[in-house]
Every structure is written in C-alpha cells, then in structure tokens.
Amino acid sequence: MELNKIVEMQIKMDESHGFPVHFPTIQEKYRQLTKDLVGLFGEIGEFSNIVKKVNIKLDRPNEYPFELPEAENHLKEELVDSLIYIIRIGAILGIDLQAETLEKMRKNESRYAQLRRN
C-alpha cells in the first residue's frame, strides 16, 4: 500500500472521530498543530524510555526485571503511534508526505553518495 493511501485512511479516521485537519483560522490550525506536536513528543518519549530500559536490561540482565521480547512489541507500537502523529501534522500543513519523502531520499542519495559501500 502506498503511503498516500495510508495518509488518506488516517485522515478519514481522524475526521470521523472529530479530530480536525482543516481549520477556519490560522490560530486554530496552529493550536491543533501544537497539540499534535506535543502528542508526537510524548510518543517519542515513550519509545525512548523503552530503549533506555532495554539498555539497562542488557547491562544488568539479572538485576532488572524487563522482558526484551515484550519491549520490541512496545517499540513497534510507539513508533507507529509516532508515525500517526507525523501523518496528522503533515495533513494539517498540507504536505504530501509520500512525494516529499521520495524527494528527500533522492537528495540524501546524492548528498551521501561518497558513503556508498557497493
């Protein structure tokens, strides 16, 4: 499935749950952008906290009660939650995430060409 289809599905779901994507004023747009940005930082924080706990477990396996297989499931969930916030922020700003990601990948390919190993 293309990223644009995922974005479209997420926007429809957001709108059906009362989370706006289009706003009558710039103030309302940036208020929602701020809320979604705080949400994104929260999800990234949760992801980071799990990584921190994994490292503690790896450093002290017998002293820290934390299950590594469970951690990867939680990491997956927090990463996807973060992506959903990025999709919402992109929709609020009117960004075509698929096109912009492909363009940035092309730029990075050129920018980091000297690091290519093949």
Rank of each mutant, 00 (worst) to 15 (best):
T34W: 13
D59A: 13
L68E: 00
T34D: 06
V38E: 03
H74M: 08
I44S: 00
E28W: 02
Y64M: 12
Y30D: 07
L58R: 13
R60Y: 12
V51S: 03
E72M: 09
D59F: 05
E63N: 06
I56T: 15
P65K: 02
N73S: 14
P65M: 08
L33D: 04
F66Q: 05
A71E: 03
E72V: 13
K52N: 12
K52C: 07
D59K: 14
E72W: 06
E67F: 15
G39V: 00
P69A: 08
L40D: 02
D59W: 01
N62S: 13
V38H: 01
S48E: 01
E70Q: 13
S48P: 01
F41H: 12
L58A: 12
I56N: 06
T34E: 07
D59H: 10
I56S: 06
E28V: 07
V38M: 15
N62A: 12
V51P: 05
P61T: 00
Q32D: 15
R31L: 12
K57A: 00
I44G: 00
D36H: 14
E46F: 04
G42M: 02
K35Q: 11
H74C: 03
N73W: 08
V51E: 03
N73F: 14
F66N: 06
F41M: 14
G39A: 13
F47D: 04
P65F: 07
L40C: 05
L40A: 05
V54K: 14
D59L: 04
V51L: 10
E46N: 14
V38K: 02
G42D: 01
A71C: 03
G39I: 01
N49Y: 03
K35V: 07
H74S: 11
E72P: 02
N49H: 06
P65E: 06
N55E: 10
K29C: 05
G39K: 02
E43W: 00
I50G: 04
Y30T: 05
P61W: 07
S48F: 00
L33A: 14
G42K: 09
P65G: 04
E72L: 13
K52I: 10
E70R: 12
L37Q: 03
I50P: 00
N55H: 11
R60A: 14
L40S: 05
I50F: 10
N73R: 06
N73E: 15
E67W: 09
E28Y: 08
D36L: 04
L68N: 04
K53N: 14
L37N: 03
R31A: 15
